[in-house]
Nucleic acid binder design. Structure first.
Lengths: 247, 247
DNA sequence: CGTTAAATTGAGGTCGTTCAAACTCAGTGG
DNA sequence: CCACTGAGTTTGAACGACCTCAATTTAACG
């Protein structure tokens, strides 16, 4: 994580942190705050880690581009994926209290991250009421999102909810505003791990969704053709659930 | 929620909020901060609501005693339980951003809550570095706990993890420091709903755990007799999992 | 003591897992 | 340029964990 680390003055007022951390248009104050907060920027290649579990924790991070997976290893060395981070997301919030990173985070795509020392964040929040509120609201959203994929759900619902979650998150900072597709940054293996399903099940449900014209997958790109129906499935009020389509 | 609401000066320095919000011993400053924050106290009977989803949100709450369930109703009117709150927990964090309560919260036991206006909290955090950090750490813990019961798990693991979660939480502010039992504040129905299992499955697993001398249930009180084995089951490295005991 | 909610127990069916094998495709080297 | 490789994905068949439905027992509370 040392290489590819730069001291940088952030000019961009369309970058994810600016959009995410300030509700409305990026103001002068917003840009100032961000430049105060973010001391370093770092670019990670696929497979590189931002941090490992048990390391001492002094910074939080904001993902500006790319995708990362957060995971922990159990005593057998099995990986359990806890979270996927997308642009605009804050990393390492859960580790603030313990001052050790609780999870490991690895880049699934080339990713750009902003590094924010916790102490800087605290000091800045003390000075800026706007930042304090904005940070609180972002955490509020984060907690809210944990109910997106409840444990109650069956495979179809989970995968539908997962796709919608990714789709919605990517919509906030789309590379191309008009594009109706997105590429899944993670493997079906990782999706299965995250959702608590067998990877074969993920494959089968993707197949089922395509057969029912909910979406199309070409070259790792997902075209959602019926977002309403997909949402219906996620929320358990849908034809596909009742008309049992065998996996 | 209007009745049983009091303006109160909090003297108690052993109450959950004081222990929870201040890492170390309750100091004079801690007590002062709490008295600044908490403007009202409220006592709820079983079945009473603290708030309902979609209501305007101006306060957060701290549960000082009792137990509450947080849930949402889907369009069919089915209840989905999202969280159980125990003493020391902060309520309504997920609703700060939207300024509307996203869930409803109902008391499962007679419960005492502290009412903290969001604006007061923000102002106090602006003034007190200790409070700002402590609040951040509590949120950090909260996010951390969402990984306690991952979706990967089977029924036995989930229920074991659930029991441990409740047990650990209650250990922080035990009514009686030496007691080796606790009473589950919620019905098996609610547990099943929360964990995404059939209530019959919950009953069967409880039976199985008792048959294998992990715990004993008498008069709604749970005596955990083998916490280590229970933890092993929760973490998927256990005899009970491999030696398949049929439900 | 009677009413109602909660918990238990059994039997059958289903969804998702597990195991196994084949296929795709990008990357690598001959 | 093509064969080789290995990770990721697809597909099939059989098993098993959990659900559903139904009936019964127990507990809770006025």
């Amino acid at each position: 994580m040392k290489k590819n680390q730069f001291d940088l003055n952030i000019q961009c007022d369309t970058c994810s942190i600016s959009t995410a951390w300030m509700t409305s248009q990026p103001t002068l104050e917003a840009t100032e705050i961000i430049n105060t907060l973010v001391k370093k920027i770092s670019i990670l290649d696929i497979g590189e880690h931002i941090y490992h579990q048990n390391e001492n924790m002094k910074n939080i991070f904001v993902l500006n581009s790319g995708c990362c997976k957060e995971y922990a290893l159990d005593e057998d060395g099995n990986e359990k994926i806890n979270h996927f981070y997308l642009p605009g997301d804050i990393l390492a919030l859960e580790s603030m209290a313990s001052k050790k990173y609780i999870f490991s985070v690895m880049a699934l795509q080339q990713s750009q991250i902003y590094i924010i020392p916790c102490e800087t964040l605290f000091h800045s929040m003390q000075k800026s009421p706007i930042l304090l509120r904005q940070f609180s609201y972002m955490i509020s959203h984060r907690i809210q999102h944990y109910s997106d994929i409840p444990m109650t759900t069956n495979a179809k619902q989970r995968i539908a909810a997962f796709l919608i979650m990714i789709f919605d998150k990517l919509q906030v900072y789309p590379l191309d505003k008009e594009q109706d597709y997105f590429s899944l940054p993670m493997s079906q293996f990782d999706i299965a791990n995250f959702l608590g399903l067998a990877h074969e099940t993920v494959s089968r449900v993707f197949h089922l969704f395509q057969k029912n014209l909910l979406l199309k997958i070409t070259n790792k790109k997902i075209y959602i053709t019926d977002i309403q129906l997909l949402k219906s499935i996620a929320h358990n009020r849908e034809s596909l659930h009742k008309t049992k389509m065998t996996l």
